[in-house]
Simulated assay, not measured.
Amino acid sequence: MAALRLSRFKVYDLIRSGKLPSFTEGRSRRVPVDSLATYIRNKMEGAA
C-alpha cells in the first residue's frame, strides 16, 4: 500500500483481479518485490 500509495481496498482489488500477483504466508498476504516492479513498469508503459 505504501509503495503504491493506494488504499488497502484498491491493493486487494488489484490482487483479486490478478493484476498484482501475491501469495499467502500464514495469515498474511505478501506481494513480492519483483511483482510490484512489474506492475509499476506495466502501468508506466500503458501511460506512455
Rank of each mutant, 00 (worst) to 15 (best):
M1S: 13
M1K: 10
M1D: 09
A2E: 12
A2G: 09
A2S: 11
A2P: 00
A3G: 04
A3C: 10
A3I: 07
A3W: 07
A3S: 13
A3E: 12
A3L: 09
L4V: 05
S7G: 14
R8V: 04
R8C: 02
F9D: 06
F9Y: 07
F9M: 02
F9W: 01
F9S: 13
K10V: 01
K10T: 08
K10S: 05
V11A: 09
Y12P: 00
Y12N: 06
D13I: 01
D13K: 08
L14K: 02
L14I: 04
I15N: 00
I15H: 05
I15E: 10
I15C: 09
R16Y: 12
R16V: 11
R16D: 14
S17V: 00
G18H: 06
G18K: 03
G18L: 09
G18V: 08
K19Q: 12
L20Q: 04
L20Y: 07
P21M: 11
P21R: 07
P21A: 06
P21G: 00
S22L: 05
S22P: 01
S22R: 08
F23H: 08
F23E: 06
T24E: 14
T24L: 11
E25I: 10
E25D: 15
R27W: 01
R27C: 04
S28R: 13
R29H: 15
R29W: 02
R29Q: 13
R30L: 14
R30F: 04
V31Y: 05
V31K: 04
V31W: 00
P32M: 09
P32F: 03
P32T: 04
V33N: 10
V33M: 15
D34Q: 13
D34C: 02
D34F: 12
S35A: 14
L36V: 03
L36R: 02
A37W: 07
T38L: 13
T38S: 15
I40P: 04
R41T: 11
R41P: 00
R41V: 06
N42V: 03
N42G: 10
N42F: 01
N42W: 00
K43Q: 15
K43A: 13
K43I: 15
K43Y: 05
M44Y: 07
M44K: 11
E45I: 14
G46K: 09
G46Y: 02
G46T: 13
